[in-house]
Nucleic acid binder design. Structure first.
Lengths: 236, 236
DNA sequence: ACACCAAAACTTGTATACAAGTCAACATCG
DNA sequence: CGATGTTGACTTGTATACAAGTTTTGGTGT
């Protein structure tokens, strides 16, 4: 799940494995609720309220709020209130830009000199994606898509790069939750993935770049559509 | 200065201009001291101590600590202590990777369709860099270099992209403070800048990419050298 | 009924007190 | 003299109380 991965991004503890502590639980819970639109953009959310319902004090809640605000998922208005951050054309464009930049460099690295020990996992992922499409299981496909792009970072020898990709991906995914994903769309994404893997394993960097740009660009018309149909969830 | 720019990165307030509040002052102060190596890697730093010397309570200090830890400048070891984060080969490699990825996409955008209103500022910056070299003013050149790369982001229409570049640049700059910058090195950097601007203004994207990769790669031998001469500041 | 003002009920920001864990110094025993 | 156990002085994590500001609500006067 996205939250558990992203948690490492803002982790301040050592690399020793530790059970989820107070702020982490609150962070994960709120993160999931925001990402899944259980908490809609603009929803007011109070430190005191979350503290009560979570059983913790306001202090851990504040820490979780800060981390979520740094991810542009919460908007803290001092002395006023804290709300789930509305969508923003500018923030989304930035997130798209950053993700594309990093992932393009990732696949360049993969095409040039990849970690071949990840090859099997990539092929396994493709097979699992095929199965998810056969079952019309959109949720499973979404998770597999997430893992697929993480595997690409691992193959590039830059697993940490996925933290940034995930953070910016979340920004866009939250928006796209408003659009139903059809099996046809899944098929398109899967075809991109297979063609991308083919190009990467044969070292065709320019072709891989073209495929990835088109792959990431598939979201643009969806974003535009949602902007017109759900303008109420956007800022201003 | 880097700190004031970076502050916006972690800003949680609205976009209204506000005077520096408690945590921001502490953050800026610590940020500068860490970046300039006034606080060396491994230095123990206590919330209580900083709170006393700054006149604030522990709470604002904690917030500043968290932000600095998220930038990989502090390492908070729960219940043990907080130290200025030692250098890490892995973190530096990641920072180099991320910065290169973003800046390469930036210059591709500039070469493709730039904001021409920034052209004059770029040329002014180049002239100022020339003057700094003539005066052998390394500090001034460093600041101009910082501004130059920010201008590139503006020219690409993605000023926010510079926040990430700056954050990762700081990670490397802190290390390179250990190496004295010669006027010869400045001249090399300046030559890169001029050739980069030439390529960008004539829309030669591939050439610009090559120049930028070489430009960013100039730090690699310096990093390696410092790793051997100052291994004590590295983790493990 | 409507405009306006005041007070109460919110919000986040800060300070202080306490809890839990780690580490180091030191006394004590073999 | 050395190893060891215990106590104390640190550290960060958490809870609570208070301060400052905003928004809403209700009453009052016109």
């Amino acid at each position: 799940m996205p939250a558990t991965e992203l948690k490492d991004d803002a982790m301040t503890t050592t690399d020793t494995v530790e059970q989820a502590t107070g702020p982490d639980q609150i962070f994960d819970d709120l993160y999931n609720r925001i990402i899944t639109l259980d908490l809609l953009p603009g929803t007011k959310i109070s430190e005191t309220e979350v503290a009560r319902s979570s059983g913790y004090s306001r202090q851990p809640v504040r820490e979780a709020f800060t981390r979520l605000a740094n991810l542009n998922l919460l908007l803290i208005r001092p002395k006023r209130a804290t709300i789930v951050r509305p969508f923003s054309r500018d923030l989304i464009a930035n997130a798209r830009f950053i993700r594309a930049a990093i992932e393009l460099e990732v696949i360049r690295q993969v095409a040039d000199a990849r970690d071949t020990s990840v090859d099997a996992k990539l092929k396994n992922s493709l097979k699992a994606q095929r199965d998810a499409i056969a079952d019309a299981d959109t949720a499973a496909f979404h998770d597999l898509d997430y893992d697929f792009h993480r595997l690409l970072c691992q193959s590039a020898g830059r697993p940490a790069a996925f933290d940034l990709i995930a953070a910016n991906k979340a920004q866009v995914d939250r928006l796209c939750m408003l659009s139903l994903t059809s099996t046809a769309a899944m098929q398109d994404l899967y075809d991109d993935h297979t063609r991308l893997v083919d190009a990467l394993l044969s070292g065709k960097a320019p072709e891989a770049e073209t495929i990835l740009r088109k792959h990431l660009g598939r979201l643009d018309p969806i974003i535009d559509a949602i902007y017109t149909t759900h303008s109420g969830y956007f800022e201003e």
